Computed example of a mutant assay.
Amino acid sequence: MLIVTSENIANHKIIETKGPVFGITVRARGVGKDIVASFKGLLGGEISQYTEMLEDARKQAIDRMVENARLMGANAVTMMRFDSGEIGQNMSEIIAYGTAVVVEEA
């Protein structure tokens, strides 16, 4: 599955647009990670526990988006983007979205 953030794919022609496609995941921070993050927040610097959690969430959101695009009959996703938000005080949602298309090599 080709995934690009651009409207077009180099050396490919879009022959059919299937429509919008997305993948979503919601992650909750654990109490242990919050405590460790609070201490690191006092000292400054990267909070690797949250970075790892968000990287995993983005990968899962992309995987779900790709599966949805396949179910639609697409072989590529254009204009792929991420969005995120918070649900409550300790949950984050990550959404990967784009346009599912069928492409062929030009």
Rank of each mutant, 00 (worst) to 15 (best):
D34A: 14
D56W: 02
S48Y: 04
A61K: 07
A69V: 05
A61I: 06
I47E: 05
L42H: 01
N68Y: 02
R58P: 04
I47P: 02
I24Y: 01
I35M: 10
R58N: 06
L54D: 06
R27V: 15
K40W: 04
I35T: 08
K33D: 15
M65E: 13
A37Q: 03
S38M: 09
F22P: 00
A69Y: 03
G30E: 14
R29F: 12
G23K: 05
V21A: 05
D34L: 13
E55V: 08
S38F: 11
A69S: 13
I24G: 01
K40P: 00
V36S: 08
K40N: 08
M53S: 02
E67P: 00
R58I: 00
I35C: 02
A37H: 03
L42P: 01
P20Y: 11
M53D: 06
S48F: 06
E52R: 13
M65C: 11
G41D: 07
G30F: 03
A57N: 04
G30L: 09
V26K: 09
V31F: 13
R70P: 01
Y50S: 06
K33P: 00
I62N: 08
R29I: 14
Y50L: 11
R29D: 08
V21F: 02
T51R: 14
P20K: 15
G41H: 04
L42S: 03
R27H: 02
E46V: 13
V31W: 03
V21S: 03
I47S: 00
S38V: 00
M65H: 08
R70Y: 07
P20M: 10
D63Y: 06
D56S: 14
M53P: 05
G32I: 02
V26L: 10
G32N: 10
R70E: 15
L42I: 07
K33A: 15
D56C: 02
G44M: 09
V31I: 14
G23A: 10
S38G: 14
E67K: 11
R27E: 14
K59T: 09
K33Y: 02
D34Q: 09
I35D: 01
G44L: 08
K33V: 09
M53A: 10
A69G: 09
R70S: 08
I35V: 13
L42Q: 06
G32A: 09
M53G: 04
L42D: 01
Y50P: 00
A37I: 03
K40Y: 08
N68T: 04
A57L: 04
L43Y: 06
I35R: 03
G32E: 13
A69E: 07
V21D: 07
V36I: 15
R58M: 14
L54I: 13
A61N: 09
D56R: 11
